[in-house]
């Protein structure tokens, strides 16, 4: 008897459907396992298609090998308003190869063929999602193995329909909180956020370098009063020392621009190993806590 490939796919879908909406999706599983080991999550960010589309899946595998717990995969956009120059340039490099949201989803699907455990969170801007349509996006993202999505310019007030749609497909909607978020609003965001909260550690764009650990400590403490899901901190984490310090305060450390810089300055032949070395060093620093 022969079972078609689609048949197998549907069977897998059927048996995994409980996992889709419950607390046992990949992101929750990852954090639960880390908590048991008393370790903190390391979440690297790269832009899909930077410096070229062929290397992205290899780079994702390298990140996992070097200690990544979750991967944030950037969807390139022509107008990345919340990003500093480093991530802007990575988006421009990817767009030179015309990397689309559909291409990014295909990359995740390829990654999933060899890695079924590491959560993948897409991060990007609203308009590529608008162009594809919520439902089309959510269905394909689920099929390709995406676990969470963070859209920078979809704040909670504009996100009811968006959250509902991703929820139906068992994908986490991850939201940002910032130093300027008032208390009342933290409560509101806490009610909608799934997976983890991404706390933006400073006022500014990605890649800035003036992270204030005391501020972060005070704010994360405050967030814990309202938020039961894990809290990740990003923006301004550039080396082992800051990564270690932030890991002492939060559940996850997000590193973006520093990795993109490494990609930018590495010759093709050394790109994977350089990024791997950088991530291993960050992993080591975080685990020293």
């Amino acid at each position: 008897m022969q079972i078609s490939l689609n048949g197998i796919k549907n069977l897998i879908k059927f048996f995994s459907s409980d996992d889709d909406t419950g607390s046992t999706n990949r992101i929750a599983k990852t954090f639960t396992a880390l908590q048991k080991q008393k370790r903190k999550a390391l979440i690297p960010f790269i832009t899909a298609g930077d410096p070229n589309p062929e290397i992205t899946v290899q780079l994702m595998n390298q990140l996992v090998q070097s200690g990544a717990d979750i991967i944030e995969l950037g969807v390139p956009f022509s107008d990345p308003m919340a990003d500093g120059p480093t991530i802007q340039r990575s988006s421009e490099r990817a767009l030179k190869h015309h990397v689309s949201l559909n291409d990014v989803l295909d990359m995740v699907a390829i990654f999933r063929k060899s890695d079924t455990n590491t959560p993948v969170v897409l991060m990007g801007y609203a308009n590529p999602i608008e162009a594809l349509g919520y439902e089309t996006f959510a269905a394909k993202a689920k099929d390709c193995g995406v676990d969470g999505v963070l859209i920078v310019d979809y704040p909670p007030e504009e996100s009811n329909e968006w959250v509902r749609c991703l929820d139906q497909h068992g994908i986490d909607t991850i939201f940002l909180l910032s130093p300027t978020t008032p208390q009342e609003r933290i409560r509101q965001v806490a009610g909608m956020a799934k997976g983890y909260i991404y706390y933006v550690s400073l006022k500014g764009v990605t890649g800035a370098s003036h992270l204030d650990l005391q501020d972060v400590s005070a704010m994360v403490g405050q967030l814990r009063n309202y938020i039961s899901i894990p809290i990740g901190v990003g923006f301004g984490i550039r080396d082992g020392a800051t990564a270690k310090a932030v890991a002492g305060l939060a559940d996850a450390v997000v590193v973006g621009s520093r990795i993109i810089e490494e990609i930018e300055k590495s010759p093709d032949a050394e790109l994977l190993s350089n990024v791997g070395d950088l991530l291993s060093a960050l992993r080591k620093a975080i685990d020293e806590n």
């Binding site: 919340a82 609203a126 979809y154 007030e157 504009e158 300027t180 978020t181 006022k203």
Partner: peptide
């Protein structure tokens, strides 16, 4: 219309 901005600008 609406308010489609990153979190840091919401309170401003």
């Amino acid at each position: 219309g609406g308010v489609f901005v990153a979190e840091t600008l919401i309170s401003a």
